[in-house]
Amino acid sequence: MNETTNQPDEKKERIPAMQSLLDNPFLLLFIGVAMPTVFYLMWGIMEIVTIPVAP
């Protein structure tokens, strides 16, 4: 099946980086879990544990 010759540009052209990111569910999974873990959970818990003790 050598029909690739019919559509040379389409198949040869490299997939843009953003599209490969969007096509990679596991990379997205990693980012999607890391973001809220860092910004919401870890930062939030740090704030709580550094609250001073009442005088």
């Binding site: 389409e10 198949k11 052209e13 997939i15 843009p16 953003m18 599209q19 969007l22």
Partner: peptide, 12 residues
Amino acid sequence: SFMPPADRIWWK
């Protein structure tokens, strides 16, 4: 919407 995009390189 429930088929793969018509263009292989849809980002462009």
